[in-house]
Write a protein that binds this DNA or RNA. Sequence first.
RNA 1: GGCAGGGUAGCUCAGCUGGUUAGAGCACGGCACUCAUAAUGCCGGGGUCGCGGGUUCGAGUCCCGCCCCUGCUACCA
Length: 504
Amino acid sequence: MPQFYITTAIDYSNGDPHLGHALEKVGADCIARYRRLRGDQVHFLMGMDEHSQAVLQAAEENGTSPRAWVDLMADRFADFWNRLEVSNDDWIRTTEPRHREAVIELLRRIRRHNPDDLYVGDYEGLYCVGCEEFKQPAQIADGRCIEHPTLELVPTKERNHFFRLSRYRDTLLDRIRSGEFRVEPAIRRNEIVRLLEDGLQDISVSRHRLSWGIPFPDDADQTVYVWFDALINYLSATGFPAPGYQRLWPADLHVVGKGITRFHCVIWPAMLLAAGEAIPRQVWAHGYVQWEGTKMSKTAGTAVTLGEAIERHGPDALRYFLLREVGFEADGNFSWERFDERYTADLADGLGNLVSRSLAMVAKYRGGIVPAARDETPLDQAGRETISAFTHAMDILDLRGGAEAAWTLVATANLYIQQVAPWKLAKEGREAELDIALAALARALYRLAVLASPFVPGKAGAICGSLGASGEPTASAWNSLADPPVGGLVSSRPQVLFPKPASV
RNA sequence: GGCAGGGUAGCUCAGCUGGUUAGAGCACGGCACUCAUAAUGCCGGGGUCGCGGGUUCGAGUCCCGCCCCUGCUACCA
C-alpha cells in the first residue's frame, strides 16, 4: 500500500483561526481523503507553531504564561478543525519534546555533514516584532513596518548563527527543473525559479537571548530562529531521528499558503540537503480567501468569523464552498451572497434534492428495497465519464475541477429522471423498466457519495446510510465504482440533507 | 522600478497552436412535469471579449502602445 505523507502549515499561536486557515486545512483534508479513497496509506499532519517573540508578547498581553497561552490556542484551533471534519492523523506542536529533539538533531547533522554551513556572523537592521523579522527598506513606510504600522521598529544588531543558504542555489534549481522537487502551481514555481536564478543570500538562524524558543546547540545565549524551528516540524512528526522515520520521510506533499512558498521551496529543502536528508517531493501553494474582493487579515478586522461561516449552513457546506468557489489555486472571494447561492443551487436543490427524490421513489415503488437490476443505462455511462474527469482533476490537485466534475453527475441524474419518468413507468405497470431506472439511480447516488466524500464527508456518509450501505466511503467503495453493489440494499427516505433556511 | 499572471454576460469562470451567428454554471423571465427540500426539465433575454492602433481574406485568440488589478522582488504560517 503506497504511503502518502501530507502536511499543512502549522499555525501561529497568536489569534483565532479564520477562513484563510480553514481553506488550507480543508483543502489538504480533501486531498488526504481522496488519497485514502485511492488506497494510499495516508499520514496527514497538522499542528501549531508556538515559539517566537510574538507569542511571548501575546501571552503577556493576555496576562498569562506562554505555556498556558499556547495550550489555549492549540485547543481552539484543534476544536475548529474537528468541527470542519478535518481528518489529520497527527497534531504536532513545536513546544513538544519530540520536536525540540528533532530540531537539535537536525542542526547537529548539518554540522556533521557540512561543517561550513553554520557560522557565526553579525546581523544589523530594523526588526519588526510583529513580523518577527528584519525589515528591508522596501517594507518600511514612515519608519514603520507596512504590515504592522502600530508597532515600533527596533534597531537591532546582534551576533547570530548563519546558515549558508547561498550554496544550495544550483542544487535546488536542478531539482525543481528536473521535476524531482515539484513546486506548484506553475506561477509559484516560476517565482521560485526566478528567485533562485537571482541568487541566494545566507540567512540568520538564531536569535539572541530570546527565552521562548529552542536552545541553539552549544550556544547558551541563542535560540533557534522561529522559522528554522518551525519548518522542521514536518520531520519531527515522523519520529526523526529515531530509526524508522524514513517510513514517512520524505513528505509527499506540503500544503502551504502562497505567502510562505519561499520558506518551503528554498530554505527548507536547503536545510535538509545540508543535513544529508531527503527533501520533500512536492509543495503546493494555495491562494488566499478574500472578503468582498479585499484581503482578509487579522489586523484588518475580520468581517466574518470562522464560527459564523460554519454555522451558516454547516461544516460540509463551508468545505464545499471554499473548495468549489474560492478555489485552492488562485485567490478567491468569499461573500455571504455567493455562499447562499452555491448552497441553494449545488447542495440543497442539487445533490440534496436528487438524493431525496431518488430514494423517495425507491420507497414509494419498491418499499425501500433497491432493485437488483444491473442493466447498463445512459446514466451509468455518464457516471463512468464523471469518474474519469474527477480522477484527472484530483490527481493534479485541481480540487475545484474535481468538485465540478462530480457535480455534473447530479445534473445528469436529474435529466435521466426527467427522461425516464419513473412515476409514469409505475402508473403504466412497466415494472422491469422501473427496476432498471431505480437501480441506475441508486448506483448514481453511490457514485456521487464516493466522489463527493472528500468535499462533504459528513453528508456523503449520510447518503450512504440512507442508501442502506455502510458508513463513509472507503477505498473499497472506490474500487466498486464501476459496478456499485446496491442491489437489495434496504434504503430509507433520508432526512433533508441540506435544509434551506427560511432566510435563504 | 524590475519580473510574472491577469482584465470575456449581473456573479464565478471555459475559450488549444487566429476561422461559421463568443460558451457553461449561478442569478433573471416564460413553459412543462409531479418522484422530490416550489424541487427538476425545456426555451429565452443578456456580452463594444479593459482602451487605442496594427498584421491578416479573417483576431478574445498574433504584434505595438496605454489603462487597471494581483503576485513576487530575500528571512511575511
